[in-house]
Nucleic acid binder design. Structure first.
Lengths: 107, 107
DNA sequence: TTTATATATTGCAATATTACGATAAATAGT
DNA sequence: ACTATTTATCGTAATATTGCAATATATAAA
């Protein structure tokens, strides 16, 4: 016990849960907001921006990258991260869809 | 170690992370989708709908309730759950805002 | 090749989540 | 009051996440 029973849910449900889990941490929200506020794709400044050690930030970036929320391109010795607008659009559509359908409901 | 360093992030970032965490599980996504597809607020049918034991479902419902994603009203011996459209709107706005701001970016 | 800089990986301790059996609480009907 | 039904809580085992020191990797510059 203890492990999520993913097998019993649909692929779509599992994927959305995974995507939301990747964002379900204040540090990762902060990373997304930072990338949004910075003009160009700035790289390891994220480590300086956050109150976390470099390995911890690296781990959070990895999770965001795995979930396709951000992309990283190598630029010399550093890596340049930026948001993936397709994934953001997917999330927007998910909640937009719920919101729309909810308008015809009693509660 | 091991605990999230919430103190170092903004209230807004912590709240959004918490809200997303409440949805970051396939069972809880399934509950939201079920409530959306059912005409009126139907109660303990959720337990029958999901491949999980009653205490587990009760726990998931509690988390959704704590995050203000669903509401429960007592109806005789049973409880009637339904989605909270305000919280859904908040989530829609969050991702909509990111999506909009992202349009003017280079990546 | 050596050195400096940037990022990733490993290993581990602390903490959180998930799931469920057992049990409690609360209400409806008898 | 007793019984059945519905939902919540407790206790606990299994698993996952978080954070960081230490270390590895990889590229740039000297």
């Amino acid at each position: 016990m203890g492990a999520t029973k993913s097998d019993f849910f649909s692929d779509q449900q599992n994927e959305m849960a995974q995507l939301l889990k990747a964002l379900a941490h204040p540090a990762r929200i902060a990373i997304v907001e930072y990338l949004l506020n910075v003009d160009s794709c700035i790289c390891g400044d994220i480590v300086n921006e956050l109150p976390l050690a470099q390995p911890t930030v690296s781990q959070h970036l990895k999770e965001l990258k795995n979930a396709n929320i951000i992309q990283g391109t190598i630029e010399g010795t550093s890596i340049c991260y930026c948001l993936n607008s397709e994934t953001i659009a997917l999330l927007e559509a998910f909640f937009g869809g719920i919101s729309n359908k909810l308008k015809n409901k009693c509660c």
